[in-house]
């Protein structure tokens, strides 16, 4: 039987999401922005698993979704960091407000 109320878990998820959003928006460094995005994905996963546990405890749908999110997060991190390394190599900076090649 679940003892802790569902809303507690959702509040943690919301808090982590807000923190991650701040990190993704406010930081200059590309790696720091990526860390913020990882926090966002984690917050979403908490909600998926919490809903799974409290609303459909007889199934594992939410957990499976969370594993897919996990896999996509890893792929995103791998490619994102590869891009950052490549950009660092050519431009010698990873600050996002200095990487403005497309502005011409």
């Amino acid at each position: 039987m679940p003892i802790i109320p569902l809303s507690w878990f959702l509040l943690v998820g919301a808090g982590l999401f807000s923190i991650g959003l701040y990190g993704a928006l406010a930081r200059r460094n590309a790696v720091a922005v990526l860390m913020g995005v990882e926090l966002l994905l984690n917050a979403v996963n908490i909600n998926l698993v919490a809903f799974n546990r409290y609303i459909v405890p007889a199934q594992v749908t939410g957990q499976i979704f969370a594993i897919f999110v996990l896999a996509i997060a890893a792929a995103e991190a791998a490619v994102g960091l590869a891009l950052i390394i490549a950009i660092y190599r050519t431009r010698d900076t990873v600050n996002l407000d200095e990487i403005d090649l497309l502005k011409g």
Binding site: L70, A71, A74, A77, A78, A82
Partner: peptide
């Protein structure tokens, strides 16, 4: 990088 991909495969 290659490790990460295989790790997920294991999961």
């Amino acid at each position: 990088l290659i490790f990460v991909i295989f790790d997920i495969e294991a999961v």
